[in-house]
């Protein structure tokens, strides 16, 4: 593999990480839910895309139109039925954090169990546009390029939605200060539910994109949660552009490690980055020191 190939593969992977990390940062930054089942929501979407693309006259791209709204609805229901009672009950932020961690940890096993029953524990994949394309002097599979373009488009769309619309501004206000947001007439409960649902929709988009160029298994969620969490912390909680940059960095580092060292060491590389961030800048590369 040449350097350019590695770089492009890294960008593809990094674009996907950035996309899913944006969803997680919405859930943690705005809805204040530490969602440990996030990776399993990604995997669920990957399986959903796998099922949908096999339907007559469907492909993964048109499948997004089903999977992403499906993710939004699922996320909304999870928030309303599972998490919002905990939010209402919690006397302070620390209790909510522990409760949400425990609940989503339980949810992780439920989702994983359902996927195992439905699809078994084998590695799953499908072929979509697996044709070589020449770019910058190297050849890349078309599905990977589409994945990168999709990840960036969807990511930037959500970014514009949050920064350029009145509605997005309200969501960001909740992230900055839930108490003051109430004073200016923002319905913080609804905002949190919508943010959580949007985060799940981004996870669904990410899962669909991942399924286009990677194999996946029902038990692979933990690794995705971990990577998304590390990207979020690296970028600074609630910081969308930070998540985008950190995601791309993580993707490139991982691809470099798996190309030049060993594919079995990618998670170790991720953890090394995490450790470095924790020791050096726990508030994130782009976060402000408090």
């Amino acid at each position: 593999m040449t350097l350019t190939t590695t770089l492009i593969a890294g960008l593809v992977l990094g674009g996907t990480y950035a996309l899913v990390a944006m969803g997680l940062t919405l859930q943690y930054g705005i809805a204040r839910i530490m969602n440990l089942a996030y990776g399993d929501m990604i995997i669920t979407a990957a399986f959903a895309a796998f099922v949908v693309q096999a339907l007559p006259s469907m492909n993964p791209l048109t499948g997004l139109a089903i999977v992403v709204p499906g993710g939004f609805i699922f996320g909304y229901l999870v928030y309303v039925f599972l998490l919002s009672p905990l939010v209402k009950r919690a006397p302070d932020k620390a209790t909510l954090e522990v409760d949400s961690i425990l609940t989503t940890f339980g949810l992780l096993f439920v989702i994983q169990g359902v996927l195992l029953v439905l699809f078994g524990s084998n590695y799953t994949s499908y072929t979509f546009l697996n044709v070589p394309v020449s770019i910058f002097g190297t050849t890349v599979a078309a599905n990977r390029l589409i994945a990168l373009v999709l990840a960036l488009t969807i990511g930037l769309m959500f970014y514009a939605l949050l920064t350029r619309t009145r509605w997005g501004t309200a969501l960001r206000a909740v992230a900055v200060s839930p108490q003051s947001a109430k004073l200016v007439g923002i319905n913080t409960d609804r905002a949190a539910a919508v943010a959580f649902a949007m985060g799940t929709a981004l996870a669904a988009a990410g899962g669909t994109v991942i399924s286009m160029y990677q194999t996946f298994t029902a038990t692979g969620g933990v690794v995705f949660t971990m990577k998304a969490l590390i990207v979020v912390i690296m970028g600074g909680v609630g910081n969308l552009l930070g998540a985008l940059t950190a995601g791309l960095v993580l993707g490139i580092v991982e691809t470099t490690v798996s190309t030049y060292l060993d594919p079995g060491l990618t998670l170790a590389a991720t953890y090394t980055i995490f450790l470095a961030v924790l020791l050096w800048r726990p508030e994130g590369l782009f976060g402000r020191r408090v």
């Binding site: 339980g106 096993f109 029953v117």
Partner: peptide, 8 residues
């Protein structure tokens, strides 16, 4: 795992 998750 589903049953235990729900119980949890």
């Amino acid at each position: 795992s589903i049953i235990l998750g729900l119980l949890f």
